[in-house]
């Protein structure tokens, strides 16, 4: 037994399937912060696609699954503002009227944090070990920003890296047009939104675009590569953990 806080890593379905490096980076950052890390194998998805499509039944079933797998840890940490907000802000509402589950969901939700804000706000991490060097720009993903108040935390840790220069893009708080299923339901509108975003990214001249959500990153990376842009795209955890050996999202 240790007196380290136990952390369940909710890796999120997109990081699990598309970007395992983010999972390993999150694991390293959490362990380096002095926590005992656990990765439950019974995790799949937080249920947000069902929830935002109006399918409360499947959303609730997936919420029960996640709560059962994670409620035993001191903290539940996800490398995504969007999934963390789903777990933290929306789960209790799914159980309204079911006293037992609602209570369980509230207790679970209270332990949930997005990765970077967990490091800075809970574990009081001031700086991390990373040899990464280059100019980066940071996009504030909507859910993390507006539902969880994540804005200063990633900038604080990036700012403490000696090799990193942060070049802010214009309108970093404006949506990238991903929106989960929105981007495939309304591809032309989504495209118009992400085109504005890639222009502001390119204007910064940064080498690397960073953000805290794989969904947004896949959208922006996919657009930058289609446009033939130069900016490379990575999850902020990869840079903070110094794990940038894998090719960037959507390649170079």
């Amino acid at each position: 037994m240790t007196d380290k806080p136990t952390v369940g890593l909710f890796v999120t379905c997109l990081a699990d399937l598309f970007r395992p490096t983010v999972g390993f980076a999150a694991a390293k950052l959490i362990e380096d912060a002095g926590c005992e890390l656990h990765v439950p194998m019974a995790q799949t998805c937080c249920g947000q696609p069902a929830y935002n499509s109006g399918d409360r039944k499947d959303a609730r079933a997936l919420a029960e699954q996640a709560i059962e797998a994670f409620e035993g840890f001191d903290y539940v940490v996800a490398p995504s503002g969007s999934c963390a907000a789903m777990l933290k802000k929306h789960y209790p509402g799914l159980f309204k009227g079911d006293a037992t589950w609602e209570k369980r969901a509230q207790a679970f939700s209270a332990k949930v944090y997005e990765l970077v804000s967990f490091l800075t706000d809970v574990m009081k991490v001031e700086k991390v070990e990373s040899q990464f060097a280059g100019t980066v720009t940071y996009h504030d993903s909507c859910s993390g920003l507006r539902e969880l108040g994540i804005k200063a935390q990633p900038r604080k840790l990036l700012g403490a890296l000696p090799g990193v220069t942060l070049a802010e893009m214009k309108d970093s708080e404006v949506c990238c047009g991903f929106g989960g299923t929105f981007c495939v339901k309304y591809p032309d509108i989504s495209n118009a939104i992400v085109e504005k975003k890639t222009a502001t990214i390119s204007d910064t001249g940064a080498d690397v675009l960073l953000a805290g959500d794989i969904g947004c990153l896949m959208n922006m990376a996919g657009k930058i590569r289609r446009e033939g842009g130069k900016t490379q795209v990575r999850h902020v955890a990869e840079v903070l953990a110094g794990m940038t050996d894998t090719p960037p999202i959507a390649g170079k």
Binding site: L17, P20, G23, A221, G222, R225, I249, A250
Partner: peptide, 15 residues
């Protein structure tokens, strides 16, 4: 409108 980023290969939980 965009490229689809390729997954790395194995899933995180598998790796």
């Amino acid at each position: 409108h965009r490229e689809m980023p390729a997954p790395e290969g194995k899933t995180f939980l598998q790796a």
